Simulated scan of single mutants.
Amino acid sequence: MNADKKTLLVTGGSRGIGAAICRQASRAGYGVAINYVSNRAAAEALVAELEAAGGEAFAVRGDVGNEADVVAMFEAVDRAFGRLDAFVNNAGIVDVKARVDEMSAERIERMMRINVVGSFLCAREAVKRMSTRHCGKGGAIVNLSSAAARLGSPGEYVDYAASKGAIDTLTVGLAREVALEGIRVNAVSPGITETDIHAS
């Protein structure tokens, strides 16, 4: 890989918003690492699409809710690209519509493990590679939040909304923590977007 080429890792990058981010980054000249958890075919199809257009990309499996998978995913990026310039914390889940008094502990714990703990673990690994404190050259982290964090999603997904509220707090705190270490941290908060996250 060209030593001057910037690199990007996108969790949940094989479909929906994540795939759109990968396409845009590739068009902008980034080498792109596309994370997926189960749909290998979708990730590999996107890699082929980006390479056919002259880009550089590879797919890497990893469940962001599993610490060992997160560490292995970032190590795979190290091996493939030798650097990490940008990271998008995109992977996340929703569940079927339900009131809070209908939610199981299993559902709530899974939501928080993937959407919150996973985002923290990925941000940790990105900072270790980007921060000047760790001999990095700086970089950018973008967290995917949601308008649900402000609206609460009553009668639908209060657990999802709460998880995205945590992402907003993570974004503000981490941005202030690493601002002097060359890392810019932001969040974007899409409204309802037609992807297959709801269907799945």
Rank of each mutant, 00 (worst) to 15 (best):
Ala72Ser: 13
Gly136Ser: 14
Ile192His: 13
Gly12Leu: 06
Asp159Lys: 01
Gly191Phe: 15
Asn39Ser: 14
Ser14Glu: 12
Gly16Ala: 06
Phe81Gly: 04
Ala162Asn: 09
Gly118Glu: 04
Val172Met: 12
Arg99Lys: 10
Ile167His: 05
Cys135Ser: 15
Ser145Met: 07
Phe58Lys: 09
Ser26His: 08
Leu50Arg: 04
Asn115His: 08
Arg99Val: 00
Leu50Ser: 06
Arg23Phe: 07
Lys97Leu: 10
Glu56Tyr: 10
Gly182Asp: 01
Thr193His: 05
Ile93Ala: 03
Asp69Gly: 03
Gly92Trp: 01
Lys5Trp: 09
Ser146Pro: 05
Ile183Phe: 09
Arg61Thr: 05
Asn66Pro: 01
Val96Gly: 14
Ala72Asp: 09
Leu144Gln: 02
Asn66Met: 01
Glu106Gly: 09
Lys164Ile: 04
Ser145Leu: 07
Arg124Thr: 10
Ala80Tyr: 05
Ala43Glu: 03
Gly191Asp: 12
Lys164Cys: 01
Asp69Val: 04
Pro190Gly: 07
Ile192Pro: 11
Tyr160Trp: 10
Ala98Tyr: 02
Met103Lys: 11
Leu144Gly: 00
Gly92Arg: 00
Glu177Phe: 02
Ser131Gly: 09
Val94Ala: 05
Ile108Met: 14
Gly13Arg: 02
Val117Gln: 14
Asn66Leu: 03
Glu106His: 11
Lys6Ile: 05
Ala52Thr: 12
Asp159Ala: 09
Val117Pro: 00
Cys122His: 01
Asn186Leu: 10
Phe81Met: 10
Ala72Gln: 11
Ile197Thr: 06
Ala28Asp: 15
Gly92Tyr: 00
Ser163Tyr: 08
Ala76Thr: 12
Ser14Leu: 06
Val100His: 05
Asn186His: 12
Thr7Gly: 12
Ala161Cys: 10
Arg99Pro: 00
Val77Asn: 01
Ala161Pro: 09
Ile21Asn: 01
Asp101Thr: 05
Arg83Ile: 08
Gly31Tyr: 04
Ser153Phe: 07
Thr11His: 03
Tyr157Cys: 09
Glu156Met: 13
Ala80Gln: 14
Gln24Thr: 11
Arg83Val: 08
Ala126Asn: 02
Arg27Thr: 12
Gly65Tyr: 01
Ala68Thr: 12
Asn35Trp: 00
Asn35Leu: 01
Gly138His: 14
Arg23Gln: 13
Ala59Leu: 04
Val60Thr: 04
Gly191Val: 12
Val116Glu: 03
Leu170Gln: 13
Glu194Lys: 15
